[in-house]
């Protein structure tokens, strides 16, 4: 196997064969997902839709927090924004779902750009609180401005797509998220983002334009989250500020990524599977679901801060197969 070494990422080796194989596997997986509604029972399609939405949200959050060190509690702000833009465009402009979702991604991008100058002045916990404030401010804005239906919210006035179609939209969104994440985490940008995460001042001193790097990650994550919010709104057919801007949309991705593995490439996916599976298994015992998720988080943070993926990686390394490298 031929190995190339990137000058900018000296510790990272790239197999000529494995990327191609990965691309093929990914294409097959996404084709299978697109075809899944044909063969899967409705229940699994519905659960699959929820899982895909959570993976997209968690991927976006992982990009920000895991790779960029931007621990955000503002996921719900972009999620709700996407929901309102999507429903507004479908109702008022007769837009189709894909057009509306694209527009919600653009809206997420625009708000990310507008808010970045203020938010990026804040670091660490202050940034986290700033994003939380953004979510709350947007929610209050939507509640109080009459165009958005106040606390009543808005209803989709056209016939909604079937769950199979929504599942395929979610698959396309996941494919987009996976592509973006592959580019963002497997390129020079990833190195720059991690450099900013590890020490923004030091990175700036050696010529990294920290603001631009953070902004790029913020834009990408915001666009993905807004699209996911739009898709969820189409599925619901009704949106209101308390549900669309609910704190759970900020907390769930955080829990998923911590469970799966912060900053781990498959952390979002593994965490989302765990989160959704536990939720479904304990659907008749909601109090247990909350308790088990909480205990899992506590145990993982205490004993395995790199999540399930970190545990799996450590287990594989103990078997003597993995090369020794620094932590991400």
């Amino acid at each position: 196997m031929t190995v190339l070494t990137s000058q900018s990422t000296p510790q990272r080796t790239i197999s000529i064969r494995s990327p191609a194989i990965r691309i093929v596997i990914a294409c097959i997986a996404f084709a299978a997902l697109l075809a899944a509604p044909i063969v899967l029972p409705t229940y699994f399609v519905e659960i699959g839709f929820k899982l895909l939405i959570y993976i997209v949200l968690a991927e976006a959050w992982n990009l920000l927090a895991g790779y960029g060190g931007l621990v955000s509690l503002g996921t719900s702000s972009f999620f709700g924004l996407g929901a309102y833009v999507t429903v507004g465009l479908i109702n008022q402009a007769g837009a189709g779902p894909l057009q509306a979702l694209a527009a919600s991604a653009l809206a997420g991008t625009a708000v990310a750009i507008v808010m970045s100058r203020g938010l990026f002045r804040l670091r660490g916990l202050y940034f986290t609180v700033g994003t939380l404030a953004l979510a709350e401010a947007l929610r209050l804005f939507v509640i109080n401005v009459p165009w958005f239906g106040g606390a009543t919210g808005l209803f989709v006035t056209v016939d909604l797509p079937e769950i199979a179609a929504l599942f395929r939209y979610a698959t396309l969104l996941l494919a987009l998220a996976a592509l973006v994440m592959a580019l963002a985490t497997g390129s020079r940008f990833s190195v720059l983002l991690r450099a900013v995460r590890d020490d923004e001042d030091a990175a700036s001193q050696v010529g990294v334009r920290a603001f631009r790097i953070k902004l790029a990650a913020f834009i990408v994550a915001s666009a993905l989250i807004a699209s996911a919010g739009g898709l969820q709104a189409i599925k619901l057919g009704a949106i209101e500020p308390y549900g669309s801007f609910g704190l759970q949309w900020s907390v769930d991705p955080l829990a998923i990524v911590i469970i799966g593995g912060l900053g781990m490439r498959f952390g979002a996916m593994v965490g989302a599977v765990f989160f959704v599976a536990i939720g479904e298994l304990l659907a008749d015992y909601p109090e247990l679901h909350v308790a088990i998720t909480g205990v899992t988080l506590i145990l993982l943070i205490r004993f395995a801060p790199r999540g399930i993926c970190g545990l799996a990686e450590a287990a594989l390394r103990r078997r003597g197969a993995a090369p020794q490298e620094a932590h991400p």
């Binding site: 990272r12 494995s18 596997i25 490439r265 990686e313 197969a321 020794q324 932590h327």
Partner: peptide, 23 residues
């Protein structure tokens, strides 16, 4: 070990089945 190193390990040493852990 970095995230990339997991990729490396999976790519170089693990059989295909192990790459499909998430699936």
């Amino acid at each position: 070990m970095t995230t990339t190193s997991l990729h490396q390990w999976l790519s170089r040493r693990a059989p295909l089945a192990r790459r499909l852990v998430p699936i």
